[in-house]
Simulated scan of single mutants.
Amino acid sequence: MTDVTLSLGKDDRGILPDRMIAALAKAGGIVPTMPFAPDQIQPASLDLRLGEVAYRVRASFLPGRTTVAERIAELTLHEISLSKGAVLETGCVYIVPLLESLALPDDISAAANPKSSTGRLDVFTRVIADRIRGFDQIAAGYRGPLYAEISPRTFPVLVRKGSRLSQIRFRHGHALLDAEALRALHAKERLVDSDDADVSQGVGVSVDLSGLGPGGLVGYRAKRHTGLIDVELRNGYTVPDYWEPVQARPDNALILDPDEFYILASKEAVQVPPDYACEMVPFDPLVGEFRVHYAGFFDPGFGYAGAGGRGARAVLEVRSREVPFILEHGQIVGRLVYEKMIARPDTLYGQGIGSNYQAQSLKLSKHFKG
């Protein structure tokens, strides 16, 4: 592979927008085995596609000093063709080579995350690469294949070659806003509709348990022993077959049952201005026995009035750990960290690119009717 450059200066720090992702691919920094789909490049990320085969492995792993292919050879239980579609069962771990490989310049790094629809199905998905020591993090200058680790937790899912469960962002330099810059941006753009927003270490996001929907609906709890979900099928499944409604209680609290999966919504309406990208990160692992938000990327324009958003709730994918835990209305459960874009994307989230969750409130994944 030849050296790849985007001719970025040292002051061009930030997340690459759509047209620069396309330029990176054209220069050979992203190497797909087949042409990109028309909507594969998003405002600040690239959807990653599953390849032709899935390997069921004995356990999750990080490759460390080896390649992923070497670990697959050691740990594979059996191989499954995805060319005509295959069901990935709950409780199993699969490794799938992706159709996209990388040959990154020495000054471009990358980070991956599950797509929103993936997280809302409780499909635990992470990206791994050769000789990395952390999930979803690709060092600058990496050259090699990418793989998805997939473990459905609640619903069995039907996937096929080309299915998109993960997305990847590309970054030049350090562009994370510090507390002072974040306070200034919030004062200018009102990132959440709260007069007393906590912006000390990212914008605090709290859970709404007061009753957002008809009949005091605050969320949904996933049912067990359901049918499968085809990840390509939109509006194909009825909600009661897969979800139980969760109603508000008089005390505005919710007891999370161990190992159950919930869809809740933030109390705050969120927006991401066009020149910034955003990510949900855990608030503090010491404040509660639960995990929030498997899919953390928010693209430029999410909830933004100029892109048809007018503010949008952050949907929270919540799973309790080993013990029951009480969530209370208004409890902070995550933080939004903002990064600069190198340039404004050509197309914002919500502007004609199949954005499923613009102006959302409490919303299940696109696979469910209503």
Rank of each mutant, 00 (worst) to 15 (best):
L50F: 12
L212E: 14
T347N: 13
P214Q: 07
G309S: 10
L182C: 08
G354K: 08
M280D: 03
A343E: 15
I132P: 03
L191F: 04
R65W: 10
P63W: 11
D208I: 01
A248N: 02
S163E: 09
A307R: 07
K10Q: 11
H172M: 00
P250D: 11
S101M: 03
S45K: 02
G51F: 10
P258H: 00
A44G: 09
T76A: 14
L191E: 07
G308C: 13
R126W: 03
G350E: 02
K223N: 00
G311N: 12
G119Y: 00
G334N: 06
P152R: 09
D259Q: 13
V57M: 07
Q42L: 14
E52S: 12
L62F: 04
A175W: 04
E149L: 12
V318F: 08
T118N: 02
G354W: 04
D195A: 11
I150L: 08
D251H: 12
A343C: 14
G9E: 09
L77V: 06
P105F: 01
Y142W: 07
R313V: 00
D346A: 15
T125W: 01
T76D: 03
S166G: 10
M341P: 05
I72E: 01
T154K: 12
S81N: 05
V281I: 14
I132Q: 12
